[in-house]
Amino acid sequence: MAAPLLTIELDPGPFQPLGALEGWQSLVCSRLGGLPAAESSFVGRVRPHTSAGQPLAALELEHYPGMTETQLQRLAAAAASPPEVAAVLVRHRIGRVLPGDPIVLVAVAADRRGPAQRCCQELLEALKHEAPFWKREWLADGSGHWLGGNTPL
């Protein structure tokens, strides 16, 4: 069984999830000679409010250059260990992200829907807790606040 195709990208600027998915599908199709039967994807966007309920001006994403990329590779490889999983895509924003903008895209292609959906969910949860990213909420008055964790599942 060939190792799954892992595609990991950090995006310093906005990305379009549907365009990103199309590009990834083309890559998977050319590398694997066709698209697997099942595909699951998740798009996360920035909420318009802070965790305290105030209007959000922007979200800042800090990362650990080098470790973040390596850790995403490790997490993707671990989540893609079931043999049915053929390909994984992770796109994650860094820098300043505006409300409503995509912040994360995870997609999984597999032979069956179960492994596709499970891998997608597992990888999303893993990267929220095990990949070095830090969020700071910026308000319209120019003040910023670092978040101490994630929203509940």
Partner: peptide, 10 residues
Amino acid sequence: LAFLPPISGG
């Protein structure tokens, strides 16, 4: 050596 405050990805 890196010290990492609580992570909030995704």
